[in-house]
Design a protein around this nucleic acid. Sequence first.
DNA 1: TTGTAAGCGTTATCAG
DNA 2: CTGATAACGCTTACAA
Lengths: 333, 333
Amino acid sequence: MVAIKDVAALAGVSTATVSRTLSQPDKVSEKTRERVMKAVEKSGYRFNAAARQFRRQRTETILTLVPDIGNPFFSNIVQGIESAAQASGYRVVLGETNPELSTEGTYAGYMQQRHADGAILLGVDGADSFANEDSSMPVVMACEHLPRSPFPTVRINNARAAQEAVAYLIELGHRRIAYINGPPDSPISKDRLRGYRKAMKQAGLKIDDNWIAPGDYSPASGYHAAKALLQMKKPPTAIFAISDPMAIGAMRAASELGVKIPQDLSLVGFDDIRFAEFMTPRLTTVHQHRELIGQVAMEMLVRLLDGEKVAQETILDHELVIRESTGKPRDGK
Amino acid sequence: MVAIKDVAALAGVSTATVSRTLSQPDKVSEKTRERVMKAVEKSGYRFNAAARQFRRQRTETILTLVPDIGNPFFSNIVQGIESAAQASGYRVVLGETNPELSTEGTYAGYMQQRHADGAILLGVDGADSFANEDSSMPVVMACEHLPRSPFPTVRINNARAAQEAVAYLIELGHRRIAYINGPPDSPISKDRLRGYRKAMKQAGLKIDDNWIAPGDYSPASGYHAAKALLQMKKPPTAIFAISDPMAIGAMRAASELGVKIPQDLSLVGFDDIRFAEFMTPRLTTVHQHRELIGQVAMEMLVRLLDGEKVAQETILDHELVIRESTGKPRDGK
DNA sequence: TTGTAAGCGTTATCAG
DNA sequence: CTGATAACGCTTACAA
C-alpha cells in the first residue's frame, strides 16, 4: 500500500510536506509542489480518506433518515440535501426508517458510534432515539417538528396550509369536505388536521367523524379511503388528501365509481409532486419547495457543525396551487 | 474523549479485551463481558467508527450513483440497495450524477480516495471515470450495461422487453406506432429502440423517423413529445414511451388535445412505477422488479467485496403488464 | 481466556 | 517554506 511516506521518499521531502501539498497546496512552494505531484503520479499513491477522518475526528458525512425514499416528495428533498451537501464538502449516507424495509434501530446507534458528524431527519420516525442519546448532537429536522424537540426544524406551516386549502374549498361552496389523513400520531398529520378543523369551524361547518379517513401517504391508502368516502350514503363533495400520492389514489377511486372530478367531486392534494400537474384533471395541491427544504436543512446542519447558532424553527413558504381538480359543487349538494 | 483504554482501566482489563467484548462478545468470558459493559456505561464511552475503519482499511460503505433520485423508478431501486446493504452491514452513500444538480466529477475520485469499499452505478453516467481508474475496483452496474464494461451488471433484457411491448401493440392491430425515447446515447435507450425497430420490422411495418420522439424520462419531456406526435397530419395510433413518467406526460398531452385513451390512442409505458396502476386509464407498462434489481446489485457487490466471482451479466425478468391504456385501434386507422 | 504491543496513514505542532 | 515527530483509537498477531 502506497502511503504518504512513500511519496515523500520518492520526492525527497518529508511526509508533512506531502500532506500539505495535498491538502493546502498554497502553503508549499511551486517547485516542491510539482515534485510532490510527480511523485504521487509515479508511485500510484491513493489518498486514504479513512486515515484523515480518523486523525481529524471528523467524517464529513451526514446521515439522512427518510421515512420512504419511494415517495417523490421525500426524494426531492433528498436531492436538495445532496446538492447542498456536495457544495459544502459533505457526503450523505441515506437510511430508510420505514419499518417494513429497515431493521429497527439500525441507525439509532449511528451517531453514537460517530459514523457521521450530524444528521437530518425527514419526519419524526426514530427521532426519539436521537433525542435520548445526547441532545447536543448536531441534528436538524425537516418537514416535521417534534414537540419540545431539542433539534432545530425547517418546515412549512402545516396547519395554516391545510386551513387555506380547506378554506378555498369552502369558498367554492363546499360544505361536506372529507379529509384523508396521514399516520395519525405524526405531528404533521395533527397539524394539518387542526388546520382542517379550524377552517371548518370558522365557516360554521360541522365535521362528520366519518369524513376523516385514515391514510399513510401512499396512493393505495388514498384509493381505499376515497372509495369508502364516496360510497357513503351522503358522500362528501370535496376531499382534501394530505399527500399527492393519496390524492392520485383518490382520483383513481373516483374514476372507478364514475364520480367526475371536479364536477362531482373537488380534490386537493398536498406537496405538489412532479406528477401533480400532469394528472387529468391537473391536481390542485399545496406546493412545498421541496429541494429548498433539503437545502436549507443542510445549510442549517453545516452551521451547527461549525459551532454556530441556528434558529429553532425555520418556516418556509407554501402555496396553494389551484388547478383543475377543484370547482364549485353541483347545485343542491 | 473516552477511548477504549479508559474503559479498560475502569474495568481493570486490557484494551484488547474491551475491543473483543465490543466486536466479538463470544470470545470473552461472561464475567469479563459484564464488567466491561458496566465500565462502558459508566465511562460514557462512544465507539469510534473512524478508528476502526482506519485500522481495518475498510469503510463498510458503498457509493450509489443515481441519475435522478426524483424518478420513482430509481428511488425504488435505491430502496432495494439500502435494505440489502443494511442486511449486510454496509452503509449507502448517495450521489446524484444529474449534471444540473451535481458538480461534475465530485464522485469521480471517491473510490480513488477510498471513501467507500465499492460502488453501484444506476445507469452509465460517470461510469467511464470508474472504468478509467482501475478496472479491478468493486463496482456493479444496475439497469444499464456499458458495452465492453469491466463491471458486472444486473438488468432486464431491455431490447426484448421493448420488442414485446411493441409486438403487443401490433397484435392489437396498430400499424402507426410512435416511440418516445430516452437520452439517445444511453445503452438503455439504444437497446429499447432496437427492440422497437425489430418488432416493427418483423411485422413488416415501416417506421417513419418522425415517430421517434426525443425524451429524457421526465413527464415534461413525454408531454412535449406526445404533443408533437399527436399533432402530426397523420398521427400515430399508439405510443410507446420508455418510462412511465413520460407516459404520464403523454396522457396529459392526449387529454389536452381531446385524444381519448385507449379509444383514439394506445399508450404503453416502461418501469411500472407505483403510480402506473392509479392512472386513469390504468397504464399498460413493462414491469421491472425495482427493489429486486437493487437487492441483487448489492448482493453482487458484497460478493465482489468478499473476493468471490460474480456473473458478468445478470438478467432479471420483466413483465408486460396489460392494463387499460391499450386497445384496438379505431377502424380505418 | 486474557494481555502485550505494534502498527494502520494522516495531520498538527513545533522548531528550524 | 520545510522537517521531525508525536499522536489519533482501534485491531490483531503473538504470547502467556
